[in-house]
């Protein structure tokens, strides 16, 4: 069996925040490999390598035990409902899951629509919010660039992650309701963690220590 321990790191927004946090720590990613197109990157600790994965794919790699640990946004975890352990809220990557509409459109305006259409890549969280608010809506599933949907008439509003609000502002959108909050979470494979805690816990502690030292 390959004894290299694999940690799944996210590409994209969370990864952009994570990689500088790991620089200079035992889990710093090999700079040369990072610049290449390789997706399996050695770390500064022998026997520990990182997989660079899209957030939507990452939980599956961890749940299947391919990677022992992973870092992923809680929004992704909540949407996918995979059987994973969530060992810590890492704090970084904080953002809001918000209902956003064109400037001038209020939540009451949206409530009053007889046929509300919401574009989102977070259907589960959106459905839960609609149920809490006793609303019904047609969900328009999108995987990216949701901000365009209200502008082009594809939907009345969107449910999307908002960090600084810059993208919203650039598209003339505003937040009309906050559905939830998200941040980076340290996740572990249930089987690996429960059957080999002596192997996985030190790695989790190393990762938590590295991030704590840099924050």
């Amino acid at each position: 069996m390959n004894q290299t321990l694999l940690i799944a790191f996210p590409k994209g927004r969370l990864g952009d925040e994570l990689v500088p946090l790991l620089a200079g720590t035992p889990l710093a990613l090999d700079a040369a490999a990072l610049k290449s197109r390789v997706l399996r990157i050695p770390t500064a600790t022998p026997g520990v390598a990182a997989l660079l994965l899209k957030g939507a794919d990452l939980p599956r790699y961890v749940a299947a035990g391919v990677a022992s640990l992973g870092i992923v946004g809680s929004d992704t975890l909540d949407e996918m409902d995979m059987d994973l352990l969530e060992l810590a809220d890492l704090g970084f990557g904080a953002c809001r899951l918000s209902l956003c509409a064109k400037a001038g459109v209020s939540l009451d305006d949206l409530r009053a629509k007889p046929h509300l259409r919401l574009a989102t890549k977070f259907p589960k969280a959106t459905e839960a919010w609609l149920a809490r608010e006793d609303l019904t809506a047609e969900l328009v599933p999108l995987s990216s660039s949701a901000e365009l949907a209200p502008l082009l008439g594809l939907a009345d509003a969107i449910v999307d992650l908002v960090q600084t609000g810059g993208t919203l502002k650039a598209h003339g959108l505003v937040e009309t309701a906050i559905l939830g909050r998200s941040s980076a979470r340290l996740v572990a494979a249930r089987g690996a963690y429960l059957s080999e805690p002596g192997r996985i816990r030190p790695l989790a502690d190393m990762l938590l220590g590295a991030l704590k030292a840099k924050r």
Partner: peptide, 11 residues
């Protein structure tokens, strides 16, 4: 009671 084997992904 739960039985595991080291490295097994499920009980």
């Amino acid at each position: 009671l739960r039985l595991w084997a080291p490295g097994a992904q499920q009980e």
